[in-house]
């Protein structure tokens, strides 16, 4: 049984029909990537899963439980954590305060401290800058902070929205290495990317999304080889 399952999900923004009958699944331990052009509905898919947006039709099942109508705090408690698009960190709070915010739904102080140590192991840069305000971090550091903050919620399924956006190639590499490392530590990952090449290189499976519908699905290696993907997202190569 899949860890996460979306069945025929339709999401609207007012009259705008953003997701038109989306069905995807993610198995425990996988990295699944969602690729597609601008406005395809990738972010909307993640927002629908984390309950920031409600589907009008359809069903979302997480670990056998129907979570279609669960509010965001409950979703986070169940272990689905969203790293929003565009490094939305708390710019005026310190790095440490940002991380503490990530653990908002958790109670056990000792465990929270352990999680923070874990985040600092993954991102030693953040530890050096604990007291610095988020807004003064560099772009790459802000992305690390956004990921670290999500890890503070102790996710079982991490939803990542374009973590490589606007970063220099060497940093993209670094971020992707860290995503792989987080996955190896047992966190399932649903990764939205425009950088299809990088995304398909670390994912097990992938979906190609166009105007709110799945165009293509398959193993990452198959997708990387398919002519549709090569032409549309891998620069025709």
């Amino acid at each position: 049984m899949a860890m996460l399952e979306l069945e025929n999900v339709h999401t609207y923004y007012g009259n705008i029909h953003a997701l038109k009958g989306l069905s995807i699944s993610v198995d425990e331990g996988e990295i699944v990537t969602l690729i597609g052009g601008n406005g395809a509905g990738k972010s909307t898919t993640l927002r629908t899963i984390s309950a920031l947006q409600r589907p009008r039709i359809g069903k979302i099942v997480f670990e056998g439980e129907d979570v279609t109508t669960a509010p965001p705090p409950e979703i986070v408690r169940k272990g689905i954590v969203h790293v929003p698009e565009g490094r939305r960190i708390f710019g005026r709070l310190s790095v440490q305060e940002n991380l503490e915010m990530g653990a908002f739904t958790r109670e056990d102080k000792q465990e929270i401290i352990e999680s923070m140590e874990h985040v600092f192991q993954l991102f030693p840069r953040l530890e050096e800058r604990r007291k610095q305000t988020g807004g003064t971090l560099s772009g790459g550091e802000q992305q690390m902070l956004a990921v670290g903050r999500a890890l503070m919620a102790k996710p079982r399924l991490l939803l990542m929205d374009e973590p490589s956006m606007g970063l220099a190639p060497i940093l993209v590499e670094e971020i992707f290495n860290i995503i792989r490392e987080i996955n190896q530590q047992g966190v399932t990952i649903l990764l939205v990317e425009q950088n299809a090449h990088m995304a398909l290189s670390i994912a097990n499976r992938g979906y190609v999304l166009e105007t709110g519908q799945i165009q293509l699905a398959g193993l990452a290696t198959e997708l990387a080889a398919s002519s549709v993907v090569r032409e549309a997202y891998l620069g025709g190569g």
Partner: peptide, 23 residues
């Protein structure tokens, strides 16, 4: 307290606060 931290998060970025599981 926890309440104060929730307020701080909401003041800073309401969308993200919600994504962090803050009601």
């Amino acid at each position: 307290s926890r309440v104060g931290r929730a307020w701080m998060a909401i003041r800073e970025d309401e969308d993200v606060a919600e994504a962090m599981g803050i009601n």
